[in-house]
Design a protein around this nucleic acid. Sequence first.
DNA 1: CAGAGAATGTGATTTGTATCACAATTTTAT
DNA 2: ATAAAATTGTGATACAAATCACATTCTCTG
Lengths: 226, 226
Amino acid sequence: MENKCMLCNYKSVAETKLTEAELGELSCNCLTVSFKKGDSIIRQGTYSTNVAYLKSGLAKIHIEGPYHVQVVRIVKPANYLGLPTTFGDKVNQYSVTAVENSEVCFIDITYFRKLLTLNHDFSNQIIVELCKGEIESYQKCVNRTQKQVRGKVADVLLDFSDNIYRSDKFVVQINQEDLGNLVDASRESVSRVLNDFSREGIIRISGKEVEILNKEMLQMISKHGW
Amino acid sequence: MENKCMLCNYKSVAETKLTEAELGELSCNCLTVSFKKGDSIIRQGTYSTNVAYLKSGLAKIHIEGPYHVQVVRIVKPANYLGLPTTFGDKVNQYSVTAVENSEVCFIDITYFRKLLTLNHDFSNQIIVELCKGEIESYQKCVNRTQKQVRGKVADVLLDFSDNIYRSDKFVVQINQEDLGNLVDASRESVSRVLNDFSREGIIRISGKEVEILNKEMLQMISKHGW
DNA sequence: CAGAGAATGTGATTTGTATCACAATTTTAT
DNA sequence: ATAAAATTGTGATACAAATCACATTCTCTG
């Protein structure tokens, strides 16, 4: 039997700490599933029996709020999709949906737990990632609640450019409604700000493609919140 | 030498998983410090060299936002104060301040790391707590951004009553300014809502003491966001 | 390729809450 | 005990953004 996890080019940082033998056993306890854009990967309120890991594509994590959905964050490949929801509670506390066509590995939770006890470098890396995630979520929340819409939209554009797509030019796969849910703004406000930025020569929009023309200005807007 | 950590009545859930020997060694790697109300326990931007743990009292975690401070959460005894900030980054990403006179144990980070590798029940519990913390922070953020001030103030009152003080009658040690920073509202709005609740017979206020008279109503207001 | 449905653009109106300004009260230090 | 400082209460005003109501433009799908 081949060691498919060892040959996999999309390992998480934690998985690079695993031995050949551990990766071999992981291969037997892991199932890769393809999802189409828009497909639900994890559903809030259902039982969580596997650790989900995004191998390729793009996904959004979202929670049901008192008024409307909130997109908590966008997850790019080589990251776990639902560690907190899998370990913190028996029932999933949030939903995950594919934003682009994606491949997701489902790792058996029992084996994942075993890995945590077997390999300290692995468990250490998981802890570090959880810590980083929490700090990031604090930071995101401050931005969301204190900045005004222009600042928040500037934030997402910079995040897309610097972290998600790693390019000044990218195709946004998320509609303005969801963009609004991600930064806590209405669909209409997102539309207005995006067009304002375009008119001001900060970005160029053609269809779903966005090009950042003046990153310094975006950073200014992001920093000062307007 | 006495095993002070073993005799300690304020162990974290994770610490209850430690063996007698481990607790003994912990005693040698842990220092208890007293803080007065208002004292700074951890300062954002400084190096983090210890894991902080709240033994008694009450503390608030807060971050510097673009406009003003945001109180991220209130921590009650037998909980770690800065796991994410200690493990996620070399530099503290948030500040912690004593809300009441408090005792804090500072655990040497090297020994804490050693404990994580030595005792799987311990590290597992830490992971579970980190996961719960992240989910909680998502939930808090949704509430903060989607509910209006009445709903958010109802939320804190319920949190104080159900989780922090575990009583329908308690003395709020946080002023309205900070209460505002905790729920993202202005000091004036908090004052108005608190007095509205009082006039409506939902709570009774005398000085810093608050008594919840109609918890069902508060839950209604919290749930519906107004 | 036409027609339906989804997504986006844009003005007018409404609204919740921040901000300002100051009074009143409580707490703290001398 | 008393002045000073901090905290709280409350009206008036300002303002950012949500909501509403359509128009327009994309994008599937039969």
